[in-house]
């Protein structure tokens, strides 16, 4: 699925012009840095979004999984699941800044829209832990279902949604009171919860249930269930995990695990419009901040597929470390992390 270099530069020319216009920080700063956690290698691969190659590899703690940007793009926070903590790396120098506490086996984390605190799902003890990233301390724990995993934050910062893989629910949590106020049953083994950018809906992927449930955020009613059909692929192999929206909310991209495809879903009609062939066992997705490129982590094939969002075509696969798991793209350009998210 990789494309030749010549094609790529042609595709990128308009993108580069657009970014250059938006960020007046010099031509060398056009590239974004893409951080990919490699679960089995204990590393994070750093990819340059312009060169589309790995420019650095960061050593991490054991079993790095969930990965996010924080502190206005200055930090990369990685769950080191088997070390029962999170690690904070400087996004520009790649140096370890500090470790943050979590509960046992942290898997996915999300920041409050204000930039602090951070909410982390601890897969091993049925808790969501709330962590102050600047003080480096645990604020509190919120009990949820068995094997908490997915974490979604409403754009207004008022609601946190956590999914529990064995309880099969999306737990709605009020970020002010830190109380669980509603629970919505979804299909088996929910992995990721993602709010639509306008905050109206939460989409929850169910890996074993082979669906994405669309929940109305205000009423918590299930609006629709997106299912998938791919010719030549058995239903059992279609296992949705990562879900990401374009900023306008018009399209959602869903990674379908061992089906080796990313589905493009219409954000309004909930219809699947396209399947994009990527690497093996695709789990998580990350857009560049300009929504031009989408990076996918392909666990079994040890690579990342780069999808051109406009054409919905894969343009390159980039070899990373072993069993790439999570991906996040830094907001700013090389050497100059942008101000705040």
């Amino acid at each position: 699925m990789s494309t030749k270099r010549t094609n790529r530069s042609a595709l990128f020319l308009p993108a580069m012009i657009a970014i250059g216009a938006a960020l007046p920080i010099g031509s060398e700063a056009l590239a974004y840095r893409v951080f990919v956690s490699n679960e089995k290698e204990n590393t994070v691969s750093v990819i340059d979004s312009e060169k589309l190659e790995v420019i650095h590899t960061i050593k991490t703690g054991n079993r790095p999984r969930g990965i996010i940007m924080a502190n206005g793009g200055k930090w990369v926070i990685v769950c080191a699941s088997d070390d029962n903590q999170m690690q904070v790396f400087d996004a520009a120098t790649y140096q370890l800044v500090k470790s943050l506490p979590s509960g046992p086996d942290p898997e996915l984390q999300i920041l409050h829209t204000s930039g602090n605190p951070l909410y982390v799902s601890n897969e091993d003890d049925n808790l969501v832990t709330v962590v102050d990233i600047f003080k480096g301390s645990v604020v509190t724990d919120i009990p949820v279902g068995v094997e908490p995993e997915g974490m979604g934050m409403s754009p207004d910062g008022k609601v946190l949604v956590n999914t529990s893989e064995t309880t099969n629910m999306a737990h709605f949590i009020d970020t002010a009171s830190l109380k669980n106020f509603d629970n919505v049953l979804v299909d088996n083994r929910p992995r990721v919860a993602e709010f639509k950018p306008d905050g109206s809906q939460v989409w929850v992927s169910a890996e074993i249930g082979s669906s994405v449930t669309v929940i109305d955020a205000a009423s918590r009613k299930v609006l629709s269930k997106v299912t998938f059909e791919i010719q030549g692929i058995t239903k059992d192999a279609i296992q949705p995990v990562g879900v990401r929206f374009t900023k306008d909310g018009k399209k959602a991209f869903a990674a379908l695990g061992p089906a080796n495809r990313v589905a493009v879903i219409n954000g309004e009609t909930f219809k699947v419009e396209k399947y994009i062939l990527v690497g093996q066992r695709v789990w998580n997705l990350g857009f560049t901040p300009d929504d031009k490129l989408l990076f996918t982590t392909n666990g079994t094939s040890n690579d990342v597929t780069v999808i051109d969002v406009a054409t919905e075509k894969p343009i390159k696969s980039i070899k990373v470390g072993r069993y790439p798991w999570g991906v996040v793209v830094a907001p700013g350009g090389e050497g100059a992390p942008a101000a705040g998210p």
Partner: peptide
Amino acid sequence: FELAAFKGQK
């Protein structure tokens, strides 16, 4: 009816 039981599929 389907059961998730740590076998990678329902």
